[in-house]
Write a protein that binds this DNA or RNA. Structure first.
Lengths: 255, 255
DNA sequence: CACTTAATGTTATAATTTTAACATTATCGC
DNA sequence: GCGATAATGTTAAAATTATAACATTAAGTG
């Protein structure tokens, strides 16, 4: 509501931009006002900074996500994807070159990569890259291009070629929809090329999808179920339904 | 030190992966142990999670940076780079296609990009991409490749070609060393190609360096001072020293 | 310049978090 | 199964942070 208040906030935002935390005490001294004023600056108006136990922290990168409290329920919702990824991780071997698809499904997998001595991760997703960038045992290859915020991923016209150069061992693919007759689909068309290229070059292909994706159809088809070697899922009905087909169908790994 | 402890940490890391915070109380319930145990999990071993005023937060993306406390001094140290970037931002115009170099110098610039209606940012640095990925008015092009953690940037053998395709308007380049006789240098050799390509294709070239970089020589030379149109710096002696040469030299923009 | 209002500072109190010491329960090897 | 050790739980005291109410200072207006 105040000109000076806004300037103080900008000042603090600078200080925090590199990702540390600033004690309320120091923030007050830095701005030359009392702690109470900083407190009010932070509560009066919406800002990218939150106060957590006396320390100022930047509401999470990149700039938008506010620091909110997860409830126990919300947190436990990750268990499904976590279980899925635990199962998927069982297929990973020392020294593998993995293609990791975009989306939120495979994110839990990445925290399990630190147990290996040496791996290579190939991805076209920013969130995947971020989750892996800190691991010293993982060689990260990010396929760049134009950024699509909705899927946190990149797209470019030569991504197919780039992927085919890479000697990918195992492709871990996620999807927004899996239909037994029509095939596997996702939301965005720019995801089709990298997914297909990865499926084409990888030696083993894994489709990782939770139960909610079955019977769902999304705008962009990119594969049939027969393109995969293994489907990792928590849908107990999936195995029964899959048997019906006559073409060579993937194994089901139930998490 | 403990198998279960590690599993709990992984579990919590999952829950926090999307960027919220989790109250110690909820974390304890989620894991089915007491708050004290979670406390110990977090203090006994190094982890990406820190406890801030009773709430668990992910130590900042990407993965490595621990949540540390900035002192007042450290925080005010950002003012130098902030001033530099404020000056540099003055050269940016609506609709520009900017090449943003890797390193920490240009990061403060990115928070000033939200004032424009429409911009394109080209970069080969993960931290730059992260800072820009949330801005709805910025089109982001990330040049991918193999990730180099030390500089948070990517390198690949066809980066030159990729850059030259892009129609970059203004190149904002940072450096680790600037020597009046020997030229401009950085630490890592993989940075040379993208920097040179950007300098070659851009219509305007800006070198953004604080005073501490002058007179310093680093392993990899990538340009001479004459390659730049403008040098943005806070070194008051820079202008005087630059006049000495006879070749066409850049303007100095003093912040 | 007095008056009004907004902004900031101060203080005391309430709520919460942290720490430390000790009690209890599990785990492992023999 | 028993003893030793590690892991976890419980409790109370100490430290810190949050809140609210009121005092003070600064800014804006007729």
């Amino acid at each position: 509501m105040n000109d000076r208040s806004a300037r103080r906030l900008a000042m603090l935002q600078e200080a925090l931009a590199s990702g540390g935390t600033l004690h309320l005490r120091d923030a007050a001294e830095l701005c030359g006002v009392s702690e109470m004023t900083i407190r009010r600056d932070l509560t009066t108006q919406p800002s990218a900074i939150s106060l957590l136990g006396g320390r100022l922290v930047m509401a999470n990168y990149p700039g938008v996500t506010p620091v909110y409290d997860l409830t126990e329920q919300q947190a436990s919702h990750y268990h499904v994807k976590h279980r899925l990824c635990q199962r998927a991780a069982g297929f990973i071997e020392e020294g593998d070159t993995l293609f990791i698809d975009c989306g939120s499904t495979l994110i839990p997998l990445l925290s399990q990569l630190s147990h290996f001595r040496e791996l290579t991760v190939v991805t076209y997703a920013l969130n995947v890259a971020n989750s892996v960038a800190g691991l010293p045992n993982v060689r990260l290859v990010l396929l760049g291009g134009l950024f699509y915020a909705s899927s946190q991923s990149f797209g470019s016209d030569n991504m197919e070629a780039a992927i085919e150069r890479l000697g990918i061992n195992k492709a871990l693919i996620s999807a927004a929809g899996v239909d037994y007759e029509r095939g596997v689909s996702c939301f965005h068309f720019h995801e089709v090329a990298p997914k297909q290229a990865a499926i084409a070059t990888a030696m083993q292909r894994f489709l990782v999808v939770d139960a909610s994706k079955f019977g769902v159809v999304r705008p962009a088809y990119f594969a049939t179920l027969a393109d995969f070697d293994v489907v990792v899922t928590d849908d107990e009905q999936a195995p029964a339904l899959l048997v019906s087909g006559s073409t060579p169908l993937p194994d089901i790994s139930l998490a």
